[in-house]
């Protein structure tokens, strides 16, 4: 892949120094801001049209993007290292199948066991990805493509056909409303993810991950254990996909080996919409949240505007291309023609 770097000429720097602080933030994080603007517009348009934006609607909006946001957490971490995880979707499908095997209607006590098993299975899969990428010195895009085939094969052994009955009480707990003003419980999970991110961002691990994504060679020369850091990043991604798989089980009530298929590319789309650079080294989970909810809201908005669902994919693709295209306009202004190559 051609390494792209945002050209920062001296003029750019001088211009951004002259700007006031909020304006400077917008200029520096254009795509991140754009993602939140798109999300806000979608939300306003949606609430405008929905007959009554009550507890039920709030709940389904929050739940709709929850699994993708969770999976996107891991994808963000891997993309920050300059890598990519194409096995996210099949890991979601695998953990979804595993969870539906552990819990059934009679065994509500085992829900927590299922949650931890999903995290463990995800972490194990991610660990394998990381070990192969780091110590095998192979390209992540093709490694995770191969392991994704393995994961979905295992998932098909665990759940050959979609089935399972996740107890309704557990679904209520994970995806229902809270006592406090009937707020959706999903907000708690979302807040927890953000808290984890904020803590993670202040850890030395995050600095190492971003250092690797910015320049692997430089990180190595400054004493970063590149291999170990990569292994941890992929393990986090697997674990996040496992959590997403568990949430999906709680949400849909059953297990389906192929349930995760869309999550691979959607999680990448969410990360990119959120302003992260696929070349690594820059990006934030907060942007990924916006990206994931943009993707989740589009079909709901179309539904309430009586637009045929056939337009859903078209709109999603155009929003993705428009967002990255707008973010790329700076390239066209580059003075140096070499920067345009």
């Amino acid at each position: 892949m051609i390494a792209t770097s945002t050209p920062t000429t001296r003029q750019d720097e001088q211009r951004s120094r002259r700007l006031a602080r909020p304006a400077r933030f917008v200029a520096k994080n254009g795509r991140l801001v754009l993602a939140f603007v798109i999300l806000a517009v979608l939300l306003v348009v949606y609430i405008e049209r929905v007959p009554q934006f009550g507890a039920r609607e709030q709940r389904s909006v929050v739940n709709q993007g929850m699994a993708l946001t969770t999976a996107g957490f891991g994808q963000t971490v891997v993309v920050l290292t300059g890598g990519i995880d194409l096995s996210v979707g099949s890991m979601v499908g695998l953990t979804n199948s595993v969870a539906s095997r552990i819990v059934d209607d009679e065994s509500i006590g085992r829900v927590w066991l299922a949650a931890f098993t999903c995290l463990a299975v995800g972490a194990l899969g991610g660990l394998i990805n990381g070990l192969i990428v780091a110590y095998g010195r192979l390209q992540p895009i093709i490694v995770t493509l191969a392991t994704s085939s393995v994961f979905s094969g295992i998932a098909l052994y665990v759940r050959p056909t979609p089935a399972g009955d996740f107890p309704f009480e557990a679904t209520q707990f994970w995806t229902g409303s809270m006592g406090f003003r009937q707020w959706p419980r999903g907000i708690v999970w979302l807040a927890a993810l953000i808290a984890i991110w904020l803590v993670f961002r202040r850890m030395r691990l995050a600095t190492r991950i971003i250092a690797i994504g910015s320049s692997e060679g430089a990180a190595f020369m400054s004493g970063v254990d590149v291999n170990r850091t990569k292994v941890v990043a992929y393990t986090i991604s697997g674990m996040a996909a496992g959590a997403a798989g568990f949430y999906l089980t709680a949400q849909t009530g059953n297990g389906n080996a192929l349930a995760g298929t869309a999550y691979t590319l959607n999680s990448i789309a969410a990360v990119v919409l959120g302003g992260a650079s696929l070349a690594g080294g820059s990006g934030t989970f907060l942007g990924t949240i916006a990206g994931a909810y943009i993707i989740a809201l589009i079909p709901r908005v179309l539904f309430f505007y009586d637009v045929s669902q056939f337009y859903q994919q078209l709109l999603q693709g155009l929003v993705l291309l428009a967002a990255v295209g707008l973010g790329a306009i700076g390239i066209l202004r580059a003075r140096n023609r070499l920067d345009k190559v």
Partner: peptide, 13 residues
């Protein structure tokens, strides 16, 4: 021309 990473550009298309 827009320097979008090929993964994203072709995924979007």
């Amino acid at each position: 021309i827009l320097k979008i990473p090929s993964l994203v550009a072709t995924l979007g298309m």
